[in-house]
Write a protein that binds this DNA or RNA. Sequence first.
RNA 1: AGCGGGAUGGGAUAGCCAGGAGAUUCCGGCGGGCUCAUAACCCGCAGAUCGGUGGUUCAAAUCCACCUCCCGCUACCA
Length: 716
Amino acid sequence: MSDTEDRRFPTDDPAVVTCGLPYANGGIHVGHLRSFVGGDVFSRALEKVGQETAFVCGSDMHGTPIAVQAEREGRDPEELALRWHEEFTEQFPEFDVDFDNYGHTHDGTNTELTREFVRRWIDGDHVIEREIQVAWDPEVDQPLPDRFVEGTCPYCGETARGDECDEGCQRHLEPGEIVDPVSTITGNPAEYRSRTHEFLKLSDFQAYLQGFIDRLEGTDNARNQPREWIEGELEDLCITRDMDWGIDYPDGEDGEQDLVLYVWVDAPIEYVASTKQYSERVGTEEFDWREVWGGDGRDPERSDIVHVIGKDIIQHHTVFWPAMLRAAEYDEPRAVMACGWVTIDGKGLSTSRNRAVWAEEYLEEGFDADFLRYYLATAGGFQGDVDFAWDRFRERVNDELVGVVGNFIYRSLLFANRNFGGTPGADLSPEVEERIEDAIGEFRDGVDDYSVRDVGEAAVRLARFGNEYIQRNEPWKLDDEEAAPVIRDCVQVAKAVTVLAQPVIPSTAEEVWSTLGEPGSVDEVRLAAALEAPPAEFGEPTEPFEKVDPEHTEELAERLEERVAAASEADGAGADDEAEADADADGEAGEAEAAGDGDGADAGELEPLADDRISFEEFQDLDIRVGRIETVDPIEGADDLVKLTVDVGVETRQVVAGIKQLHDLNELPGKKVVLLANLEKAELFGVESNGMVLAAGEEADLLTTHGDAVPGEKIR
RNA sequence: AGCGGGAUGGGAUAGCCAGGAGAUUCCGGCGGGCUCAUAACCCGCAGAUCGGUGGUUCAAAUCCACCUCCCGCUACCA
């Protein structure tokens, strides 16, 4: 970031704005919507400043989560993914997220282009073949790529997924790295088999990426977070997987290999493919995708490619992706805008736990899409997290959008219409002209700073000025002749507000535009239109917005509260296996939740007794047994965890317990313990734990029996 | 432990990256105005040591160091 430099928008070249691909295995909620709205606002704003822009995206159809889900449901992955893809296609327009092209990664364009990328890598000698050990389920004789396998991270020892150490050090894991692999489908311990795979030599691009990251524009998090990777040792990226679902690896000669490309290979290429589809549809004279993506002899380090993503996929867009582009001799991204999460009560949304406000649900409640767009775009800085609360939503919409923006436009236009039948014939005052120019400047700065918020605020501030201005001049106390210049100014401000606000509230802006009697669409005009005279005649305006009913949001807040409570409960009880597919979905705040413990932990300070009573039946749901410890083995790499085998009469269970530092392990065998037998299985450090040994307090003081109860006896 | 992001008047946020008159906007509180406007809008007040400590500087919310506390991904007490 050699500072603001002089590379301001617009440039002479066409730009492309992309949004992180929604993953086609679940619905869209407000968290996802934030990055789509952000991208849409930004691309509209770019056009407002005169930048030729294509806004493209597509559904992410491949990858193991979809394959896993399809397998579980006994369905075809393509059919599964397409169903969601269709839904996305319908939902985006409802929020005025208006892509110039929306494709998907499984379509012909992407498939072809992806293969071409890979061929270029091969031709450029950036791909090497390597024998690696891949996880394999011996029982069903099936390879276990990525998230088909879980195990222990070789770096930090945490439980990890096959493709990343999601719970520990967050490292990206290459196939074959994970220790103690277990199949996520069958639960079988996996074994490693030797397979030949293809690798993109990221190491070829280390120096390049170091320069790239200094050049990259966008939000700070995107420019800083990857530095650790780029400045460290870059490992080569395995670009193939042993799977059926995906794009076949283009190996030319022997079509024998049943390898497909890693999902993160074909997913970002969809950005290019989708742009290409757009070009093909409108014609290259209108928009030439090659001018954006390169290969046209321009400086590849000076593109106008802007990626809008969620902060969970920063590395993919700032390390893998630029290397992939470079290796195929395409241009590099100019900017990456990584937005924060949308939270509820400060905690992340969760698809699998229904801890969310769904896109569909929002619309069903009858709210204006512009309201949510406004809220999401301006509630906080783009890279910060934004809390979604219905009452905050109502507050900001009613007080700012309706009260300030809508009200100003309405009162101005109504006054003008009643007294003058339109815009009075008078000159624009220098004060107002200057103020509008300032607003245009704020808007421009917002675009150049990649600040969606500032872009949105520019219009609101101008409207606020408008209210002050009309109040200060009190035209209602003046005769028509005196009032004319004031109203002329107000109508001009109202028009300017409409132009400036259009990227955020496109549909309302459009209505106001036609109320003003302006020809064409506000979507088409540029910022300069804010200072052009409004029509001399226009009809009676209607109120641009209808307020949000407080009772309505109150009710929704209650409903949401219940839903969140339900999610937390489900959560407190359960392990974290359900997290599987979420992380890829962009804008999704993975699964948080530490369930209430953690606090009151200090010795000497006892937790209060629980208020909620449970029924005897509920108690009986717990299958608690007497057990006898047979063997004790410390778990390698873990501080406290040990692997126990416990005789519970009917069988012997393997249980993991965190008691290593608190008990002399040698004394444990033979000790009787109390075991919760029907707790769901969990995996800790790659070791399965089938039950829970009960212990008291922080010290994990093991419970035992005083009499002669025998293993297997039920506690009642 | 690791990585990232924070800590600003009662609550929620902006400013800090390009350091300079004690600071934005929204809600809330108090008082006033106006009546064109969707009980809207406008004005004024209430007064906060801009998390702590030290440093750089003529000057720091804004830069540097250390610290504390939060939050997020996530965790070994299953």
